[in-house]
Amino acid sequence: MSAPVVAYAGHADPASPFVILLHGRGSDERQILALAEHLPAGPSYAAVRAPIAEGGGFAWFANRGIGRPVAGSLRAGLDWFRAWLDAIAPPGREVLLIGFSGGAAFAGGLLLDDPSRFRATAILYGTLPFDAGLPTTSGRLAGASVFVAQGEHDTVIPRELLDATWRYTRDESGASVLARRDPVGHGIAPAALTALSGWLEQQLTQDRP
């Protein structure tokens, strides 16, 4: 895989917190970058294009069903992403992830693979990548900070995967979790966006555990 295509917004200071936006399946980096307009000023925002062309857009991994990554494809994507990330943001710079839909599953995969690498992770209207070769053991995310937003009427992500993500993050992972469900489908509710912005501001201003 070649180096990813990346769109940026916010501060260019390499010492500033680095917030990475991960788009959904069939979308691209330009669409998800618009989210930065509703988030706190201060960080450097980077929207990364997924590596697999699909449906006029791009995807993070091959699926064996909606929300169910092919393990080998997910592994290749994680390694590709980490090679880019570790070159542009060496360990020591705070990195935060915000993923939507398929990008939420990818963000969750990055977090499960290396929980200590990320300052905080938002999983928006998507599922963690269960049964895809990554550990989802009890306490795996101890010390991590996670924001979860789901739509009560989401018919895109299978309900059993949304429920499993809700249960694991809140009750089993060991993470510090802010989770909400809003009466929407597969899209970001305005109230959830406001909550996400407030949560992100808190992550950026409080000391890391």
Rank of each mutant, 00 (worst) to 15 (best):
L161T: 08
G65D: 15
L193S: 00
A36V: 11
L141F: 11
A132I: 07
P135H: 09
L21S: 10
A62D: 11
G108T: 02
L141K: 11
A7Y: 03
T136V: 15
H38L: 12
L134I: 13
G99I: 03
A87S: 15
G174D: 02
H11W: 07
D79L: 07
L204I: 12
G109T: 01
R93M: 06
A3V: 07
F130L: 10
G26P: 14
T205R: 15
R30I: 04
A62E: 07
P91D: 13
R93A: 02
L112I: 05
T155L: 11
G65Q: 15
A36G: 08
V177T: 09
P40N: 12
L128G: 12
T205Y: 04
P91W: 07
R181V: 15
L134A: 14
T127Y: 06
P43F: 00
G24F: 11
I32D: 06
G24I: 14
G185L: 02
H186T: 01
G143F: 11
W166T: 15
L35Q: 01
A175H: 05
I188D: 05
P90A: 13
G108N: 00
V19D: 06
R93N: 08
P115D: 09
A53M: 00
M1V: 13
D182R: 03
P17E: 10
E152F: 06
E201R: 15
A15S: 14
A120R: 04
P129V: 08
A15Q: 14
V148F: 01
R49I: 00
L193T: 02
A46W: 05
L193E: 03
Y8T: 08
F106L: 01
T137K: 04
R25W: 06
V95C: 00
V146L: 08
G139P: 06
T194V: 14
P129G: 11
S138E: 14
F18V: 13
D171W: 08
P115Q: 15
L111G: 02
V5T: 13
F130M: 14
D171Q: 12
F18Y: 13
R180T: 06
P51T: 02
L85E: 12
W80K: 01
A41Y: 09
G126Q: 02
A132Q: 14
L97F: 06
G10Q: 04
A62Q: 13
G139T: 05
Y168K: 10
S197A: 15
E152D: 10
L128C: 11
A41V: 13
A132P: 06
Q202H: 12
V184W: 00
E201W: 04
F58R: 09
E29D: 14
A164D: 12
V5L: 09
L74H: 03
A41R: 14
T194L: 08
R117C: 04
V177H: 05
F100M: 12
L134G: 06
L134R: 11
D114K: 05
A34C: 10
Q206W: 07
T169I: 05
S197C: 09
L39G: 03
G174Y: 07
E160C: 02
A83R: 00
A142L: 13
W166F: 11
G185T: 00
W80V: 07
P4W: 09
D182G: 01
A59G: 14
A132K: 10
P158M: 13
D13C: 06
H186I: 01
